[in-house]
Simulated assay, not measured.
Amino acid sequence: MKYIYLLVLSVFVVSCGNKQENKEEIKPKPLMTLVQSHAKTAPVLPTFYDEVKDWKYLKEVDSFFVKYQKISPNEALSNAVELKDLVKSLKDSLKPKKFDIPSVNARINILYNEVLRLADITEISAIEAAEVNNQVDKTMSAFSDINTKINTVLAKIRFENEIDIDVDFIGLDSTRLDTVSKKSIDLRMKEKLIEKNNLDKGSRKRQ
């Protein structure tokens, strides 16, 4: 009888131990569920909205990043694959001509690489919350760089469209201007030349 009692007691102790282990296994990591605030991505300036309003995938990625401003590591990882697909569409799709330039494309590629890293760490079971939060920050920063570059490109084009003198006279190195800039300046100078010729013709007729 004594041996039977000891056997039952041993089975009970082992059973309780297994249940405790199972509870520890399924217990979520508290830090992975804590909502973390991240800096907003830099926007395209309101004055340039019309220039990007038809750029579908840029707008979709921009909207998607809103949910990343306050998000837990677990939620960030669960949304990573969808974000990766959106950024891939942004990278592979046709872009507005003025933005299909090396400086913008390079920043889109950097964003895609950061999103790939975020998606890859979903496969790492031992990932720490701090690592996920850090990668979210890098990814959002990469998108900010795209918008900032878009603002710079558009501001440059606007400036070039407003100048009234040859670039040589204002110290710009024309050999270092990108294709979009050169075309903008050339077009503006041609327009000025046509205006001047028309004025000259009008003056001669009046004489």
Rank of each mutant, 00 (worst) to 15 (best):
D50Q: 14
L31M: 14
L199S: 13
I157D: 05
P73S: 01
D62W: 15
V35T: 12
Y49R: 11
I110Y: 09
Y68F: 14
Q20N: 11
P30D: 02
A142V: 04
G171P: 01
S93N: 08
L118V: 03
I26Y: 00
L83S: 13
L6D: 09
I124E: 10
L94W: 03
M1W: 04
L6P: 03
Y49M: 08
N134K: 13
K138S: 12
K201F: 15
L154M: 06
R117C: 00
T41N: 10
H38T: 03
N133F: 01
T41I: 13
T139K: 02
G17C: 09
L193E: 15
R204H: 09
K2D: 15
T179N: 10
P46L: 02
T122C: 13
E75N: 14
D186M: 13
R204I: 03
Q135Y: 02
A39Q: 12
K2S: 15
N198V: 08
K97M: 14
T152P: 01
T152L: 14
P43T: 07
K91E: 07
A106C: 11
V104R: 01
V8P: 07
D145Q: 15
E75H: 10
R117E: 09
M140S: 01
L111R: 00
V44R: 00
E191R: 13
R176G: 10
N198K: 14
K205A: 12
P46V: 01
I185E: 00
F65E: 07
L90Q: 00
D120Y: 07
S103G: 10
Q36K: 12
L199N: 15
K91D: 11
A142L: 06
T33W: 09
A42F: 08
I185D: 02
T41C: 10
D186P: 01
L111M: 04
K190W: 05
D92R: 06
D62R: 05
S15C: 12
V104A: 03
E162R: 02
F169R: 15
S144T: 07
V167R: 02
K182H: 05
E131A: 08
P28S: 01
K2P: 10
N109V: 05
V180L: 02
E131S: 15
D120N: 11
L45K: 13
E75V: 06
T47Y: 11
S89V: 04
E114F: 05
E51V: 01
N161Y: 02
K27Y: 00
F48W: 09
D186N: 14
V87E: 04
L193V: 14
S15V: 09
S63P: 02
T122A: 11
